[in-house]
Amino acid sequence: MTTYLAAAPTPVERAAPAPILVATDLKKRFGRTEALRGIDVTIGRGEIVAVMGPSGSGKSTLLHCLAGILRPDAGTVELEGRRIDTLGETERSKLRRSSFGFVFQFGQLVPELTALENVALPLLLDGVSRSDAEARAADWFPSLGIEGLEHRRPGDMSGGQSQRVAVARALVTGPTVVFADEPTGSLDSLAGEQVMELLSAAVASSETTVVVVTHEARVAAYAHREIVVRDGRISGVVAA
């Protein structure tokens, strides 16, 4: 077996990419729990980075802080050199829908809207007209293998289909960074791999950065590198 697999191509050595998302000394506590105890992260343009770590290590909190969902108690987050942790809620909301995309484990689609409308949602929120927004949204369906599902409701789709709709929604605005929190957590291996395959293929051409929180090594294997969070700190930074 090893003989076949020995032919595996070594992934192309990437030149150190230009940093796009830089966090320094992030700290965040919830009540008595210290979720982040000083984290430094630099993520480059076009990188796919896996955030790994045991349950409760703070990896989701790190993602929420990087994505401007949560505000860190201390430390800074910069997107393309601009501080985003100090922005107001409205500014961060705008940033989330223009520069970021999100794929979460579940519950992220609006159950009342069809798949197409869900994908068009960030555009609608940005003031794009409904027909334009739905036309742009529809473009994503073939490449994610969900053609024909445009007018289904989330409740009428399988988990894998829902996640692919979520990927389409995350990508529809042409974001700088896509954040994914356990995107395959509720899927079986095949569906999970399809989602990761589509996500990584979709971002490869557009230099979109992906930060994916996962506890699955197979999912992390789609990333260019991994960051391990343990007890709110970065653990095991291994020189590449």
Binding site: I69, E89, T90, R96, R97, Q108, L109, P111, P122, L125
Partner: peptide, 19 residues
């Protein structure tokens, strides 16, 4: 409960508090 979920989902994709 349903509406809260829906609006949280909207917030996630970047709807501002105003929206």
């Amino acid at each position: 409960a349903r509406r809260e979920m829906r609006l949280a989902a909207l917030r996630l994709v970047g709807a501002t508090p105003g929206q």
